[in-house]
Amino acid sequence: MELKEQAPATTLARKLGDTAHVSGLAIRLARLNGAGDRLPEWLLKAAVERGAKHYQREFDPALPPDNPTISDEEIGVALCLGQMPDEPWLIRAAAQLLSSPRVDPQRLARLAEMERVEPVLLHIATACGQVGEALEPWATLRRQLHPRRIVRTDALPHWTRFAILSGLTRDGYAPPEWLIRRE
């Protein structure tokens, strides 16, 4: 039997044709909650527990519990970091978590620039606009964030992945419904 070296897991940054910085946010979150190398899994669990219920699943009970000192904005941005694995549900969970009036759009915009996730959050914000929603924080992000060139925006989830598409029902055609956070 021929053994082949296993390909390293692709990061989101690599998929987008971008570079990933050494994120102080990721280092601090991994330290604060004790998740260490399991930070992506911990972030997804925290997002689901905080209201991104569409992505509910069985999580390893050994994962550390949520930490209320970490803000929703930090969880959402960390899920979109370039160093994260290229797993679309991390971005989709971030979108649902951040679709909440409890999220501060200004704080989110600053954190997005600091952590270089503007392309991902602008992609979500544009998707939200496509669904016809004037929902915050996305409307503010569309106005405030400056686009940064990345090679492959098509690598990000299609806008329909952030919404529920009921389509034709007995009452007629149901418009797409943006997945907001369940408070």
Partner: peptide
């Protein structure tokens, strides 16, 4: 530093390894 500079819109977060530039 970033907390102190937030009102001015300044920050220090973009640290890259030599492998990424």
């Amino acid at each position: 530093t970033n907390a102190e500079l937030a009102e001015r819109g300044l920050y220090l977060t973009h640290l890259f390894t030599e492998a990424d530039v």
